[in-house]
Design a protein around this nucleic acid. Structure first.
Lengths: 115, 115
DNA sequence: TTATCATATGTTCATTCGTTCATATGAATA
DNA sequence: TATTCATATGAACGAATGAACATATGATAA
């Protein structure tokens, strides 16, 4: 892991304090998993298409010029991450953004990029 | 892309409007790239270690029980994404979170997960 | 200038991931 | 009930990615 002569800048007391202040491993992992879902341009495009709109799968595919299969696969990932919700209406299934967190996280991303 | 008999829920006027309302492809791509950086538990751990602390590479490695090489590689990715900044002090290089966006994005992630 | 310490970089390898194609499910309608 | 339409699922393939190991860079101190 480290060479034996490594000279750290922090003493062991502060190091230990930092180690203990880390959130539980599980939480960090889940946060990473969440952002991983946002980390694909196809899914970002889908999320933006749903920004303020409720759309069925076929329409998303048409708006984004994607195959139905691809959209459906990605919607499943978004669904599992609780980023979108859906309801059935006849043969169609309509998707929408799940809650305000999704809006806010995307807005944050836009802000950081547009600098 | 779609079967010839596909019956969309939206008329072509609304579809076109949606298509035109999408942010530029480049922006969506950059947003995805940004979140991709957050989408790895190793990098999330590093970012959390830097939450309010300025640390040098060796200390990050020690705090997180990671190899120096691995930390350095990930720091480069964080640096390229402008999520961390750094300054040299003697032989050491100290890293810190770059701006408030980073804090806010992570806080959003935590909030969404802790529900 | 040479040796040393802290950090960075290059390469390889195993794994993950997104897309595509084919097919299955399942609700609505004839 | 049989057919059709909308969506979901499974398998396969290629591309991207993170970790590990070895090595390079570059600043400092002897």
């Amino acid at each position: 892991m480290e060479s034996s002569q490594e000279q750290n800048k922090l003493n062991s007391e502060m190091l230990e304090k930092l180690v203990n202040n880390q959130p539980p491993e599980e939480v960090l992992y889940e946060v990473a998993e969440l952002f991983k879902v946002f980390g694909d341009s196809t899914r970002i495009r889908i999320l933006y298409a749903l920004f303020g709109n409720e759309l069925c799968v076929g329409d998303i595919a048409e708006v984004l010029s994607m195959s139905q299969s691809s959209v459906s696969h990605q919607l499943r990932i978004l669904k599992d991450a609780k980023l979108v919700k859906f309801r059935r209406e006849g043969k169609s299934i309509f998707y929408a953004l799940d809650d305000d967190h999704v809006y806010h996280i995307m807005e944050m991303g836009m802000e950081h990029v547009e600098e």
